[in-house]
Design a protein around this nucleic acid. Structure first.
Length: 468
RNA sequence: GGCCCCAUCGUCUAGCGGUUAGGAUACAUGGUUUUCAUCCAUGGUACCGGAGUUCGAGUCUCCGUGGGGUCACCA
């Protein structure tokens, strides 16, 4: 049973890369019938924003990731951290450092001038003299002075970092508030996490946190450091690369299941399988199978997945989702026919909405090229006769198949090829040369609207003939 | 710069010492569709370089190259 968490800081929207680590953590928990927690890292009071927090929760909600229990807020747990700071101070595992920011800056500059690695020199580590006045101390934890800090990363294998690389890190600021690496270690331990799955950028935090774990005698969890997602050029993903905010994907007409399917395949695979339902992901996911190397974001693949999920989604559900994109469809049969006729023609819900608008709204103008090609020769009289046939048709006209019979009968009595009527008809009804099948469109429009649109086209052709 | 990590078609990836290096996407061509899309078929394209180890290396080791991460009283 795995207990995992996602721990964003409320400083901005939920990033697409963040969503992937959240998904991995969530899957690991759900796969093992464990727990998945959401924890907000808001120890830096000056950087938090309520909007960011709400945006993150909203994104979770949209993609359908749930979390166990209530959301944890580190800002509400300061008492807990304080207790541990005092404990470490009492045990001599942490100490007050009276070095001012200015002194620290000076030290760093000197070190840089000497081309040394910048680091704290430990000057207050064993200090027992009289502290300088007027300086509010920070509290530092004693990190090991020699040896290596070693841990087994579930993805990358054994990671060994020399103790010399790890400073006596500040666990409490001079204003008394605790710092990131300290509270993360405490909360991860207190929340009983078995597995910490996080971005690669946290790899170097791990030894620091291990120092805290060991000082406090906590059990160290399994760590998994997931490589980053790069842009299509293989560089770091930035806002310039288009959508990085999860909620932008909703605006762009992506389905949560497509986005999740896309993300789960970035750095993880199960043989040759490409399509994964949420249930399949849960069933098959194991963090041990996550790849070591970084992967690149590829919009084409996401678009393909999205198209796949749109095509295979029940019409009823699709219709419901389309309301957010300004599409309201009246009547059950009409909705079914409309979506059957269009859902294979849109890669996103936005495109699908456009396809629907194209049918629902009578053409305001005819595409010039299409009109030139289709509205020539005898097209006006052919269309007129077809309208007459529709008007006089005395069996039921409801389903596409009904209209197909009309079309067939027309072609037969007129002794013309299918294209002779289909192309002018298409342009009459849609204004363009491409789109769904004629049978479907006529069924959606109904007899009256179909005849109206044909008559408009006939008028248009006649007017043009008179002019030309 | 120090430290750490990574490296198979353009992209996502399979591979886990012996394969004609597989799949997906994208692309091209053909078929189906009156059109478009869908769908189906076919095709081209990859093991970063160099040394080892081995009868045999995409797979193991080392070096190089390239890319990434990180070096805060941010998270």
């Amino acid at each position: 049973m795995k207990i995992t968490r996602f721990a964003p800081s409320p400083t901005g929207y939920l990033h697409i890369g963040g969503l992937r680590t959240a998904l991995f953590s969530w899957l690991a928990a759900r796969h093992s019938d464990g727990k998945f927690f959401l924890r907000i890292e808001d120890t830096d009071l000056s950087r938090n924003s309520q909007e960011a927090l709400e945006a993150i929760i909203k994104a979770f909600d949209w993609v359908g990731l749930d979390y166990d229990g209530e959301v944890f807020y580190q800002s509400q747990r300061f008492d807990i951290y304080k207790k541990y700071i005092e404990q470490l101070l009492d045990e001599g595992k942490a100490y007050r450092c009276y070095m001012s920011r200015e002194e620290l800056d000076t030290l760093r500059e000197e070190q840089m001038a000497r081309k040394e690695r910048t680091r704290y020199d430990g000057r207050y580590r064993d200090f027992d003299g009289t502290p300088p006045s007027g300086v509010e101390p920070v509290i530092r934890i004693k990190a090991p002075l020699d040896g290596d800090i070693v841990f087994d990363d579930g993805i990358k294998g054994e990671i060994s970092i020399s103790a010399e690389e790890v400073d006596d890190l500040v666990i409490a600021r001079s204003d008394g508030t605790p710092t990131y690496n300290f509270v993360v270690a405490i909360d991860d331990a207190l929340m009983g996490l078995s597995d910490v799955i996080r971005g690669d950028d946290h790899l170097y935090n791990t030894p620091k946190q291990i120092v805290v774990y060991e000082a406090l005698g906590f059990t160290i969890p399994n760590f998994y450091h997931v490589a980053m997602i790069n842009n299509e050029q293989g560089k770091k993903l930035s806002k310039r690369d288009g959508a990085t905010d999860v909620m932008e994907y909703q605006k762009l007409g992506f389905l949560p299941e497509a986005l999740l399917n896309f993300l789960v395949r970035l750095g993880w695979s199960h043989g040759d399988q490409e399509i994964f339902s949420i249930d399949e992901m849960i069933e098959l996911f194991d963090p041990k199978d996550i790849n070591k190397s970084a992967s690149s974001y590829n919009l084409d693949k996401l678009l393909w997945l999205n198209a796949h999920y749109i095509k295979n989604m029940p019409n009823e559900k699709l219709a419901k989702m389309l309301k957010d994109y300004g599409v309201e469809i009246d009547g059950h049969d009409r909705m079914e026919m409309l979506l059957d006729a269009t859902k294979e023609r849109g890669k996103t819900l936005v495109e699908l909405a456009e396809q629907i608008e194209l049918i629902v709204n009578a053409p305001k103008e005819y595409d010039a090229k299409a009109a030139k090609k289709a509205f020539k020769g005898e097209s006006d009289s052919i269309l007129a006769r077809f309208a007459t046939l529709l008007t006089d048709w005395d069996s039921e006209l409801h389903l596409p198949a009904d209209y197909h019979k009309v079309l067939e009968s027309f072609v037969e009595t007129e002794e013309i090829g299918f294209g002779k009527i289909a192309q002018p008809l298409r342009v009459s009804l849609l204004g363009s040369m491409t789109g769904s099948g004629m049978d479907e469109i006529m069924a959606i429009l109904g007899r009256d609207e179909t005849i109206d649109r044909i008559k408009n086209a006939v008028d248009f052709i006649s007017a043009n003939k008179a002019e030309g």
